[in-house]
Simulated scan of single mutants.
Amino acid sequence: MVKNDQKSKDMMRIEESHNILSSEPPNVHHISDSNMIISYKRGQLLFVFNFHPTTCYKTYTIGVEEAGEYQLILDTDEASYGGHGLLREDQYLQRTNTKRADGFRNSLEVVLPRRSAQVYKLTRILTT
């Protein structure tokens, strides 16, 4: 219970600092029923959910329009939340590549632990 309470507090901090609920509606741009993955963008934040009960994806491609660097600001798989802590610190900053995905010009290749959610913030825009 304490760990879920901490997740809720951290999500509320993200809401307070980014005004997620008052920003434009979410732009759902990736849904995979077979992989059990959903991702959407809301404001400067990218939300990625892996609902699969058993599969961890070591490199999963998510399309994004904006080329740049995306900083992981919430990972529900962290040990502090009761997760497995599969992501290493050097995986917290992701840089886009020019591989097209989901109808977008750029993409991120992220690690998606099973039954987890991640929130990335676009921290640096790169010109191509």
Rank of each mutant, 00 (worst) to 15 (best):
D90E: 14
G103V: 06
L46T: 02
H30N: 11
L46W: 06
S23H: 13
C56P: 03
Q71Y: 10
V28M: 14
S39C: 12
A117R: 05
D75R: 06
T54F: 08
E78T: 01
R100M: 13
Y70I: 04
Q6I: 14
T128G: 07
D5W: 12
G63P: 15
P113T: 04
K7Q: 09
S39M: 13
E89T: 12
L74E: 13
E89I: 08
D75P: 06
Q6T: 13
F47C: 02
P113I: 04
I38S: 02
N50M: 11
R13N: 12
Q44D: 12
R95H: 01
E66H: 09
V119A: 00
K9Q: 10
N106V: 02
M1P: 12
E15Y: 05
V110A: 06
R42H: 06
Q6A: 13
L87T: 09
L122W: 03
G83A: 02
T123F: 02
Q94G: 09
D33F: 09
G68L: 00
V64L: 07
Q44Y: 05
N50H: 05
M36Q: 07
R105G: 04
E24S: 11
L93M: 14
V110T: 06
E69Q: 13
C56A: 11
V64S: 09
D5M: 12
L86R: 13
S116Y: 00
T76F: 00
V64E: 08
A67Y: 02
L126M: 07
V119P: 06
A67H: 08
L93F: 13
F104Q: 15
Q118R: 01
T61G: 03
S8P: 02
D77T: 00
R114W: 02
N97F: 11
R13S: 11
K9T: 05
N27M: 06
L46P: 08
H52N: 11
G82S: 01
F104W: 10
K58S: 14
T54I: 00
G63E: 14
T76Q: 01
T127G: 04
G83S: 04
D5A: 09
Q118E: 03
Q44L: 05
A79N: 11
E89Y: 06
C56E: 15
P53F: 05
E66F: 08
Y70L: 05
Q94Y: 07
M12W: 10
V48T: 09
R124T: 08
K7I: 15
L86P: 06
E65C: 04
I125R: 03
G43I: 01
S116L: 00
P26V: 03
G83P: 02
E78N: 06
E109S: 11
M11E: 07
E66I: 10
E24Y: 12
H29F: 06
D10T: 03
V64H: 05
L45D: 01
N35M: 07
V48A: 14
P26F: 11
F51C: 00
E65D: 14
G82I: 03
N27G: 02
I125S: 00
T76N: 01
T98V: 05
H30R: 10
T55G: 12
R42F: 07
R105P: 01
N27F: 08
T96F: 09
S8I: 14
T96I: 01
L74N: 12
T127N: 10
A101F: 02
N106H: 15
L126D: 12
N50C: 10
T54M: 03
V48W: 04
A101R: 10
S17M: 14
